[in-house]
Amino acid sequence: MSKDEKEKKKGGIFQAVKEFVYGVAAHDSARFALKTRASMEHLFILITMGDMLGVPILPPYYSLRLLPYVVPQISTWKRRMLREKDLTDALA
């Protein structure tokens, strides 16, 4: 086994251990952070684009400026804001 291959193998094991440790210890934290982030994203769209749901919050001139950035989120956001509490919430 050449020196290079040895290094590579060592790296591979190290990588696997790193991923394992990440999975055990940190994955949940990362998921939690992202989930919180997603809720905040929805809150953010609510306070900028609220008038789409009939909640007028912001003078519209500048809210239009932000519209292009949230186009992809609009439909999921509307669903989330408008749906009633149901079983799927427990699964979320």
Partner: peptide, 10 residues
């Protein structure tokens, strides 16, 4: 929060 997630995930 983005930053936290990114750091944890390296």
């Amino acid at each position: 929060y983005d930053q936290v997630a990114a750091t944890i995930k390296r």
